[in-house]
């Protein structure tokens, strides 16, 4: 792999994305992480609080 060529290409393509976390980025990150964390938390709560066997 020619890293220098790849580096030049990458610098061209990603110049616009090298900023910090923008407000929209915060929104997507918080919503996504909150959604999966809440979902897994709710699921395990339901699993662990249900009786192991049901007649």
């Amino acid at each position: 792999m020619d890293h220098l060529a790849l580096l030049a290409l990458a610098q061209t393509e990603t110049a616009a994305t090298s900023t910090g976390l923008q407000p929209a980025g915060w929104v997507f990150m918080i919503l996504s992480v909150s959604f999966v964390t809440s979902l897994v938390g709710w699921c395990f709560y339901k699993v662990l609080t249900a009786p192991e066997h049901e007649s």
């Binding site: 990603t14 994305t17 090298s18 900023t19 910090g20 976390l21 923008q22 929209a24 980025g25 915060w26 997507f28 990150m29 996504s32």
Partner: peptide
């Protein structure tokens, strides 16, 4: 910057 690279839409 890292978080922005991953999450900025």
């Amino acid at each position: 910057s890292g978080l922005g690279y991953m999450w900025n839409p």
